[in-house]
Design a protein around this nucleic acid. Sequence first.
RNA 1: GGCGCCUUGGCCGAGCGGUUAGGCACGGGACUGCAAAUCCCUGUAGGGCGGUUCGACUCCGCCAGGCGCCUCCA
Length: 460
Amino acid sequence: MKLYDTLSRKLIDLEKKPGEKIAGYVCGITPYDEPHLGHVRTALVFDLFRRYVKAQGYKPVFVSNFTDVDDKIIERSAELSIHPFALAEIYERLYYKLMDFLNVEPLYAYIRVSQVIPDIIEAIKQLIDKKHAYVTPDGVYFSVSSFPYYGELSARKVEDISLLESRVEPSPFKKDPRDFALWKSRKTNETVWWHSPWGDGRPGWHIECTVISVKFAGFPLDFHGGGSDLIFPHHENEKAQSEALMGQKPFARVWMHTGMLRIGKEEMHKSLGNFIGATEIMAKYDPDVVRYLLLSTYYRDPVTFSEEVYNQAANTVNNLRSYFERLDWVSRDGEARTRVVSLVTSAKETFHSALEDDLNSSAALAEVHKLITQLRVEDLNISEASIVKQFLTHALRTVFGLRLTKDGKVDESLIQDMVELRNDFRKQKKFSEADAIRNMLLRHSIVLEDTKDGTRWIRE
RNA sequence: GGCGCCUUGGCCGAGCGGUUAGGCACGGGACUGCAAAUCCCUGUAGGGCGGUUCGACUCCGCCAGGCGCCUCCA
């Protein structure tokens, strides 16, 4: 399997055999507010990746984190007068709920920063011993000049970085403006802090990912992922720390970055008022459609979310569901013809080679659509329908994570009674009565279809 | 200012130096009591200007437009 690597700007072959582990780390969220569609896009990309390698027989060991120790959490929880960890817990739970709604399979581990404080302290100690970090009155800083490869991931010249005006309040104790905090000394009033050899305080933003990934996914990682907005400074810093700490390169064999989600022409931001959060997603959108929409594009490119695009995806998903469901209606006996078998076989091959090629999900989905147009349901016999269904189950359910069903609360036997009643009316040419039944069912999203083999119904 | 990305038919969106991507929508037809669904048919696009080539949407250069990052961010 080949993946595009941000660092080398080339496709890298993972060179794994089925049965082997694929271990990686995906930067998670800071649970200070609702997770949003942008987080969803990244989660879905790695879910597709994980589902695919799992289906191919690899053992995915994907690790992620919750940044529950952070400036924003502290600020927000102070505003709300609740404990920072309580705030984090609220949004962690919402995140899990959202993932469940979207049919995202749980990763191998989700680790909170607060769970690995002793490991973080140990890592900082080692960095200080190796002269990659220094202690100051307001914290411990990583010394960028001690690491010669700094800037290679984000393709920046270190001199440029040092010239920049820092958005963060510069510390008077930094030896170099590019240096970043590994440990922040406790300010008065702060409620979240730990003892350390350098005084009470808490970890800086980047060190957690180094520690969690090394501890739970190993070194080097097969891949390291996250949104493309994290390339600088977060991943650059994380890489510097990790490689300095371990005394070897690379930290990750492949750096994978997902493109940003846009609403209309703009990137989604709370401040722009185009924020689509977890509760809104779960209330308004169909998880299959969200998955299809966000996975039908190349993961590194930006993807735009709009009503129009959503509706297009919704139609596509409905058609897929309909085809999938109609496979169960096939009743003709027979052996599977070689033409059908070979079309399915080659679709499967193309589907897989598309995903092998840097997760080309649009090409993979195109292959599914192509097979569907080549094999109309009414031309299939039972054995053929079963082969097709097996492939679609694998491709769309197992790999793409679509459920392909809509759960209804309507009793099926009741629907069957209604269908029979309506057909009695039709035989008696009482069409307005028949239509009344059809309309009534339609209001419960049950659509009737009169075929040559009788009346069928489907949930829409 | 620095680094990088993008521009494909009404919309979304791939691959590829010379053969139909695919989807959604639209239109025509078949079927139907009417519908719905389904089936059949229909679209030859690739920002602009040059260059390389027998041949470019695909490679190179320039221009135009759009976007991202440059210590909050998935």
